[in-house]
Amino acid sequence: MLVSLVSNSKPLPPEQPDVVVPWWSFTKTVLAAASLTLVRDGLIGLDDSVSEGPFTLRQLLRHQAGLADYSELAHYHTAVFQDETPWPADDMLQRLDAARLRYEPGTHWHYSNVGYLFVARLIQRITGLTLEQALAQRVFAPLGVTQVRLARTREDLKGVRLGSAPAYDPGWVYHGLLVGPLAQATQLLDQLLGGALLPVSLLREMQTPVHLGGPIPGRPWNTPGYALGLMIGDVDSGLTLRGHTGAGPGSVLAVYRCVEGGNTATCAVFAESDDQGSAEAHALEHLSAALGSRQSIT
């Protein structure tokens, strides 16, 4: 298990900043940040409808657009397991019958990678740039993150720590798969939530969650919620986690920030397993220690 931690309250443990890992669904946090810079610049409104369907940017970012998710397709998992060539995105959408909304936008919550595919397309359409160019211009450069890239092919994953799935094809992540040093995931979330990219009003919107019920078995969440590209909720130690967990074949990345009093700590944990709860618990353990929380996580 690899850990990167930054804190303003306690000495830091040894880091492994140069280990390049897949960011999995932490990519969603970056896509959300990029789309919110478009809102910041007056190019789209959070509650504007988008051309991908009868839903708004806010609903896409919050997984409330009424969309299904391709993880529901049994043959998707079979194709990934058998190392098949990824289907073209439009083929995947047709197989999923993605144009058929599963509920009226804004009335329910359902995690959807398809929603973030539409966010990625929206960013490209509005900026006139490739997704990688847009993310570099609008997120990475302003936050001083210089070593992150989009992986499109198996060749792009050479040198990336992949756990037990070294032959994985990143084309199966339809909204795009970012890869980069573990420490740069920590840096990006710390800078983003610290106010280095978005104005206060938009940062507040980004961190306003829809609440998703009670505790999740096997995971540290007591009151889980989802905001705009962020998982947010209270945990056993009394802290509130803000960040994202991402999982793919053979590994998990959990990147979270906590604030307690005037102190902050941000931690990224990469585990070569499929256990999201364990990675989150390890991140929380490091955050609690850095903030001097009275409770420890076992």
Results as ranks from 00 to 15, higher is better:
252 V>F: 07
259 V>R: 01
257 R>L: 06
258 C>D: 04
238 G>D: 07
235 V>C: 03
245 T>A: 15
249 P>I: 11
240 T>C: 08
263 N>A: 09
255 V>W: 07
264 T>L: 05
256 Y>F: 14
235 V>H: 01
239 L>Y: 10
254 A>I: 05
251 S>C: 15
246 G>M: 08
249 P>T: 13
265 A>V: 08
253 L>A: 08
238 G>V: 09
248 G>F: 08
258 C>G: 06
262 G>C: 11
256 Y>E: 10
265 A>F: 10
251 S>L: 12
259 V>S: 11
257 R>Q: 15
247 A>E: 15
264 T>D: 09
253 L>R: 13
249 P>A: 15
253 L>S: 08
235 V>S: 05
249 P>E: 15
260 E>G: 02
248 G>I: 08
234 D>I: 02
242 R>N: 13
257 R>N: 07
259 V>C: 00
237 S>H: 02
260 E>K: 09
249 P>S: 10
254 A>P: 03
243 G>W: 08
238 G>C: 08
244 H>D: 10
241 L>E: 11
258 C>P: 03
242 R>I: 09
244 H>R: 03
253 L>D: 02
243 G>F: 06
238 G>N: 10
233 G>T: 10
247 A>K: 14
245 T>E: 12
240 T>I: 12
250 G>S: 14
255 V>S: 06
241 L>S: 12
251 S>D: 15
266 T>S: 10
257 R>M: 14
240 T>G: 05
245 T>M: 11
260 E>R: 12
